[in-house]
Design a protein around this nucleic acid. Structure first.
Lengths: 191, 191
DNA sequence: TTCATTTAATAACAAATGTTATCGTCTGCC
DNA sequence: GGCAGACGATAACATTTGTTATTAAATGAA
């Protein structure tokens, strides 16, 4: 699982082995809740196989805010970083193989990593990049119509359209399931 | 201008004086464009007095994405960090007194600061916090109705409602000027 | 002050989107 | 194989929101 990342980290083998040994493997069925709303996020997950959504309950309806797939890492980020109750659920969509690491272990790794300029800068870049991604996502919400957002999704994130049930996608796009269904059928007519 | 921040930075006076000397004062009228769309953002602004908006042109209509007030700092963040053309304009709303620092000077300061654990962690916290703020803002967009978003704005950011022309606020809320006007009059009726 | 410009309110109408309900299909499980 | 539950399409209708046009008020510059 971790070999593919090996060359990204200028660490000697003993450190590398120590760090990877912190991760535990976890196999779960579809619709498994990995983090409850209100719980403090203490585990960071890396997805070996499967797909995960982040969502929250809004007046009885669930709103999905993010999807994650193979090789991505998932946590309720503010809860994880600041030890606050999570505003969201984290739940598998498909049966999944995951690796997770405890917050306290990550903290140990980070303290050490922050002393190595190259890795520290890599870490800072990652946080920045995450911010930029959120900004992009946000801007597309105020800029694009639902139809355009759906077309963007097909273009930029085909995995979501292919692997995720449609009603989750609808709430991710900020529209009702009925409306998404209408959008799809109108797009089909044009072809 | 900078004395108020002095105690936040564990630096000796010589470093402090060097760093603050990088900043230049700038006084501009209302509706001054500080950064053009397409331009690479090379200046970070700190607002001593006045108010600024960040916006972009979407099919002939301008969409405002952010407002900034006294003591906040402003740049087209991804453009500034990655030296890419800015997708947005930065423009004063009121006559303003600003202090700005060149990207190359910030880079010098950051390189030094990253070696001081306390300041480095402060910097990392700032980036995280910015991300969390974007997430919050984004979530309120998919979660709340325009009426609720307007009420939140009054509650959480009264400065915006008080100092910013209403048509900018409308686009910031993701609605038309007419709709915002309707919302206001309906809220007045209820009282 | 005066005039042009900007800003905000409102009405009338159009378009987009949500809601509820129904039906058919698919899927996983016993 | 059959059944319950999940999923998606569609229709009918309701509500929200946008568009365009008009008017009035506020603002700023000469």
């Amino acid at each position: 699982m971790f070999e593919q990342f090996r060359n990204k980290f200028p660490l000697d083998d003993s450190k590398w082995n120590e760090y990877t040994s912190y991760f535990k493997r976890l196999e779960v069925p579809a619709k498994t809740i990995l983090l409850e709303e209100g719980e403090i996020s203490k585990r960071l997950f890396i997805i070996e196989k499967g797909c995960i959504r982040v969502w929250f309950n809004n007046n009885g309806k669930d709103l999905t805010t993010q999807f994650f797939f193979e090789n991505q890492n998932v946590a309720s980020i503010e809860s994880f970083v600041k030890k606050l109750p999570s505003p969201v659920f984290i739940e598998t969509i498909e049966p999944a193989v995951l690796w997770w690491i405890h917050k306290s272990d990550i903290d140990i790794i980070l303290e050490e990593i922050k002393e190595i300029p190259e890795l520290r800068d890599q870490f800072i870049d990652k946080i920045f990049q995450r911010t930029f991604d959120y900004i992009r996502h946000f801007v597309s919400f105020i800029k694009d119509s639902p139809v355009q957002r759906y077309l963007n999704l097909i273009e930029e994130n085909p995995q979501i359209v292919q692997r995720v049930p449609q009603h989750y996608i609808a709430s991710y796009l900020g529209i009702s399931t009925v409306h998404l269904s209408r959008i799809k059928s109108k797009l089909l007519q044009r072809k």
